[in-house]
């Protein structure tokens, strides 16, 4: 039963990854212009590796912490991210955004690597602050467009799918040696975050 569960999760992960990676190709036959808003929204969060890394890491960490964090973090993240995005769109500055983004990957990587089990009361605000940085960075990059709702929707769905990808990969936790593999992945996130932090200062 557990194995089947893992298999299903992995399968879902694969599908999510495919959808996120090849949206334009997969849906190219649908009316081009109309859909563009949704798909440009969908592809924006995956435009930068710093963002991808952090969002997958949220899913990974959730998988490591198990329920209820598993599903509360992906509920909290999009709202805070959108709030950050709104501030960015309104031109309201938020300090240390670039550094905050890089630090988010480092912190999340460390938490996973060390298998740190923070309580929800700490984990949720932490993730939400990171989400705010990420959202703000996106918000300031966006230019006015007519299909705002669709774009927003695509953006949010992409974020959700990246979390799902992280949770799916995190399902290896249930396999023998899975915990070790998962913590190793945390190490990878940590390395990536360090790289982006150096980039943010350089």
């Amino acid at each position: 039963m557990a194995k089947l569960h893992v298999f299903r999760l992995l399968l879902a992960t694969g599908i999510c990854a495919a959808v996120v990676q090849f949206p334009e190709a997969a849906f190219a036959h649908v009316e081009g212009e109309a859909v563009s808003g949704f798909f440009s929204g969908l592809s924006h969060p995956i435009g930068g590796w710093d963002h991808i890394l952090a969002m997958i890491a949220v899913g990974l960490w959730g998988a490591l912490l198990g329920p209820p964090a598993l599903w509360i973090l992906p509920i909290a993240f999009p709202i805070a991210m959108a709030a950050g995005g709104m501030l960015g769109l309104l031109g309201i500055p938020v300090p240390w955004v670039e550094i905050g983004i890089a630090v988010s990957s480092i912190v999340l990587g460390l938490l996973i690597l060390t298998n740190m089990r923070l309580s929800l009361a700490v984990a949720i605000p932490l993730v939400m602050i990171f989400a705010l940085f990420h959202g703000h960075a996106h918000g300031t990059e966006l230019s006015p467009r007519a299909d705002a709702v669709l774009y927003s929707l695509g953006f949010v769905v992409a974020t959700g799918l990246l979390h799902a990808l992280g949770i799916g990969v995190g399902a290896v936790d249930k396999l023998p040696m899975g915990r070790t593999a998962l913590r190793a992945l945390g190490g990878g996130v940590l390395l990536g975050g360090t790289y982006f932090l150096i980039g943010a200062f350089a």
Partner: peptide
Amino acid sequence: VLGSWAAATGLLSLGWIVG
């Protein structure tokens, strides 16, 4: 989760419309 996505979409749209 869907509720959270809807709220997030609303927040972003708000930013867009007001912005």
